[in-house]
Computed example of a mutant assay.
Amino acid sequence: MSTPVTTGFKDSAVKPGPPHKVVSAEEWQEARKKFLQKEKEYTRLRDELTRERMALPWEKVEKNYVFNSPEGKVTLSDLFDGRSQLIIQHFMFGPDEEIGCVGCSFAADSINGVLPHLEHHDVSLVVVSRAPLATLEAFRKRMGWHFKWVSSGESDFNYDYHVSFHPEELETGKVFYNYNVVENLPHNMEDLPGLSVFYKDENGDIYHTYSTYGRGGELQLATYNYLDIAPFGRNETNERGDLTSWVRHHDKYDEKGHVDNTGRYHKEKTPGSCCSED
């Protein structure tokens, strides 16, 4: 889950009056021009980071990963679908779960619109999870997504790219994620989000060029980029200051319920029930 900047307002349903100084048009223009210089510095720095990212060394992929897809068994090479570049979204969706992580669903909502542009610019984008293919397909249909979604449940792919953890790893209290040792994850949190990027050359050799985890995937999350220019920003008001305070599957906003600290959505408990329903 991300930990973005918030407004500090505790009640997202009730906003106070203007929290900033109200000024004349001339003063507003001057303040905005001054801040524009910092925005330009950020843009130039982001451009430089992009150049440095593209210059990072690559590692050759030696293992033959096989996935379950609607077309049957496919390899990592097949996922390129005739293109030379492949972006994979690691979506938190374990083998025993029926619905996908709320945060990963939030990110996946940004894919439909960009997919045709990527595919016509030599880039394939595929979503990968450990859940069985039938479960993934049912959830994809419910959410109205059009991207390819394959199951890695019968391979080491998720574990090799450090987005899934064996129960015995979690029992130790330490897992390797986002290039660091992360301690004390909940024992039922066997998956975490990320993005991994690959290149396939004319000989069919595949190279791992980049992976990013945690907040590293926020640039691909369109809703956050809009919220970051809105008056109240992300306005995430729970104790953790993350998306579980408000984000829901896009077809669940009119229903009550909550999202726990592992990104799982729970329906509101029904009368006579002792707890929320999954």
Rank of each mutant, 00 (worst) to 15 (best):
L133I: 03
G8K: 00
L115T: 05
E41M: 09
G82N: 00
M54P: 00
T212L: 03
H258R: 07
N184S: 11
D11R: 06
V259I: 14
G257K: 01
T6R: 08
R248T: 04
G113A: 10
P132K: 06
N68R: 00
L185D: 09
M1N: 11
I111D: 01
I87G: 10
C104E: 00
F147A: 03
K256H: 08
M189F: 13
G8A: 03
A13E: 06
L36M: 11
T43P: 02
D156R: 01
S245H: 00
R46H: 08
L56Y: 06
M1Q: 11
E168C: 01
K73A: 13
S155W: 03
S155I: 09
V66N: 09
N225Y: 03
L118P: 02
E97D: 09
G257W: 01
T270Q: 15
F67A: 00
Y265S: 10
T3I: 11
G72V: 07
S2N: 13
Y65D: 07
S155A: 11
S152K: 03
C101T: 05
N178K: 12
V163D: 12
F106T: 12
K33C: 05
K148Q: 07
V197H: 13
A134V: 05
D81I: 01
W246V: 04
T212Q: 04
T223H: 12
H166F: 08
K269H: 15
M143C: 09
S77C: 07
H166A: 12
E30P: 02
P16Y: 14
Y199M: 07
G257C: 00
T75W: 13
A108Q: 11
E268Q: 15
G241P: 05
L118F: 08
H250F: 09
E277I: 03
H121I: 01
E154I: 03
S276R: 09
V181I: 14
H146I: 13
W28C: 07
S155Y: 05
M189N: 11
K15Q: 12
S155T: 12
E30F: 06
L195N: 10
E30I: 05
